[in-house]
């Protein structure tokens, strides 16, 4: 059994080995490898077209890699296992919220889709957790971008996943909403839950993460622990790394 086909140890939440993805002639991922333990928070920075979204789509079973292997919460992500999807939550700039339904109805629907016990109670609970209880019975189409993003968080955690993927969640948020999102992320970052965040917002990313990676042209060029990072010079380091590897 080679390294790529071996499941990771139980304390590992996400493991990728040599992940590659091609769309025809375009190589979106060119061999991404990393490991993330339970309770860790990884922020992935990279320019547009670096393959960050493709990486998260593979890890969340939305697309399959051309080569390589990936394990999430102990399940093989390349097989698109339904059991794996019970363990993950995904937040992206697209909310996946039905505008004609209320916040409550949206949450009840997703709770049923995930097989959550007592969907109605859980729906109220999770909407309360993201601070939208006052708008529980309002149509989602009437929500501001920030409120919609909070409802998206509620949708993503309704089944209490052990791994959370966040794809550019700060897109389109004003300062207040972005600050509120950072607070929510800190709340979601528990000992048992691993998080992967892709973002262009270096300051906010570094505020919340334990590890930071720079992805350029489909590869992780570097990955450091937050303790090893010089925050003052990280932006310069990021720009230099992107320039040298583009």
């Amino acid at each position: 059994m080679d390294e790529t086909s071996q499941p990771p140890s139980p304390d590992v939440a996400v493991k990728a080995v040599g992940l590659r993805k091609s769309f025809g002639w375009l190589e979106a991922l060119r061999g991404v490898s990393f490991e993330l333990k339970k309770g860790e928070f990884l922020a992935v920075f990279g320019p547009n077209g670096a393959g960050k979204t493709t990486l998260l789509k593979i890890l969340s079973t939305l697309t399959r890699p051309t080569a390589g292997s990936a394990w999430v919460a102990g399940y093989d992500a390349t097989k698109g296992d339904a059991e794996l999807r019970k363990e993950i939550g995904v937040i992206s700039h697209a909310s996946s919220i039905y505008g004609d339904l209320t916040a409550f109805e949206n949450m009840v629907f997703y709770a049923r889709m995930y097989g959550v016990r007592d969907p109605e109670t859980r729906a109220v609970e999770v909407v309360d957790e993201v601070g939208l209880k006052a708008r529980l019975h309002d149509r989602a189409a009437t929500f501001s971008r920030g409120m919609l993003q909070r409802l998206t968080i509620a949708r993503a955690v309704i089944h209490n996943p052990s791994v959370l993927f966040l794809d550019e969640p700060y897109t389109g948020l004003d300062q207040h909403a972005a600050k509120s999102l950072t607070e929510q992320l800190a709340f979601l970052h528990t000992e048992k839950r691993a998080l992967i965040l892709t973002t262009h917002d270096i300051d906010r990313g570094l505020d919340t993460c334990d590890k930071a990676a720079i992805q350029v042209a489909g590869k992780f060029v570097r990955m450091d622990s937050i303790d090893e990072i010089d925050r003052k010079n990280f932006e310069n380091l990021y720009l230099k790394t992107v320039r040298e590897n583009s």
Binding site: S96, Y98, G99
Partner: peptide, 12 residues
């Protein structure tokens, strides 16, 4: 709309 199909595909 709002990529709800992706939301459905992410459920088990």
């Amino acid at each position: 709309e709002n990529d709800c199909l992706q939301g459905l595909m992410l459920t088990p």
